[in-house]
Design a protein around this nucleic acid. Sequence first.
DNA 1: GCCGTTTTCGGCCCGACTGTTTTCAGTCG
Length: 557
Amino acid sequence: MRNAEIAAALDELGDLYELDGAVVYRVVAYRQAAQSVRDSPRSVEQLVRDGRATELPNVGKTLQEKLSVLLETGEIPQTVKLREKFPGELVRFMTIPGLGPKTARKIHEELGLTTLAELREAAAGERLRSISGLGPKAEQNIVAALDRMNDEGPRERFLLSAVLAIGEQIAEPLRAHPAAHRVEIAGSARRMADTCKDLDVIATADDATALTAAFGELEVIAEVRSSGEAGARGVTHNGLAVDFRVVEPDQFGNVLQHLTGSARHNVDLREHAVRRGLHVSEYGVEDDESGATHRCATEHEVYELLGLDYVEPELREGRGEIRAAIEHRLPELVTIDDLRGDLHCHTTLSDGRSTLEQMVEAARERGYSYLAVTDHSSSFGFGEDVQPADLERRIEEVAALNEKLKGFRVLAGSEVNIGTDGSVDYDAGVLKRLDWVVASVHSSFRMGRDRMTKRVMTAMENPLVDVIGHPTGRKLLRRAPYDLDIEQIVAKASDTGTMIEIDGHRVDHRPVIILTGTGRLADDLARQSPRPAGMIFVEVGDLVALGAAASGALATR
DNA sequence: GCCGTTTTCGGCCCGACTGTTTTCAGTCG
């Protein structure tokens, strides 16, 4: 069973327990355990079989046993039992905004409803108001929510790149406004989450009303849905909801911390605070002993008051970063300034939009010291294939260009296709003449986990392949990753010295993920042989993997 | 159901909003 399936089983049982009226802490425990499983870079099935699932955060003896039964029999007995008690779509009642477990259960017990269609009918027929606590308004909301769910499907999310671009179109003009002091993006966009459902912007100002009005008049804001003295909620032309708030300067740090989240991070942070006799809210940090509330102008003050190292927003996902902050072992994030070059780009030779010279010029402008040009190969298709003779010419162009360039190196490369049998689509003779070979899967995505894993591993065994391109094939919001065993791929990478690409364009992995200790890009890839030890790029979207990588566990595997 | 520089048992964030109530339970972020 894949981690995602095990996590789904835990989530389902958590939902059922919630309906059954279990104490919320038990329900929360199941959700946290599900998240831990989902986040784990290791095979949870294997951990369970080894009796070591308790090594995962929020998984204890009870869940180790339940998961063990799940793997043996395909079911958790409690789940089967509760499904009978709460049949049909009862669990889905709780997905309707405003409907929680208590109300859903009451509706089931008093009216015997089990499907969403029955629920809608009862609400439209004004039969829900017979239940105490429900009235006309609730009936209206339920009908509206169900109709919306039918029309629109699940809530739309937006790519981080789109949200950040919109964020700048909001923050920049507001920063220039005479009434503004600080304007910052908060929320999931500030955490660099790969997709966001809305955007939070907070500000300090001399005149909150004036700045709020200016927000409503921005070109990107299509409509203001609600507005007050110190903030407004608007929607952009492409449907992104934007919350804008103006706050007091001496609370800016508290509010920025609160709104940046994540929810899980804030819960962990506040639990840590309570253990120290402190209470954290968006308004300040209250001290039990003195009764005083400390207001913080900066986030650094918030974390310092709690005895924590400053946690970068990218790490605030509730994956163990509070503990790491206590123990002074938070990772150091790589920044744009750390990047020395780019090892995957396309030009007009295949499907790129710029010429070789333009790409090199752009790379130099960014302060890079190298660039590998890796156009598609001979079987790419779409009329953009690069036949061996074309590639030969490209190699000569690159050599000529390098003659002229000082302090910069262009690497002649290619992005070759990995065939279903793991072979690549240029002869060894051609590949040998290249400085840099990226091998990627571009076809037959649905061949299944075992065959796909074998296919990619076969390509990794090819000594002429330097790196596997976009190893999961995922396109955020557009295409699910193809099924392959990333753990085996990473282990293979260690054996063969093949690198694994971190693709910030299609985003196989979170873009902000590496830390010191895993080895950075070498200063000069021209001196790439022998490759520096530890220069393995691993899929690390979470602190568990980061921690392991920092201690060398992954780098030496 | 998890977990421990207060605890192996008894805790487990914080505040706002909504709709239904006559003072608050349930839900949400």
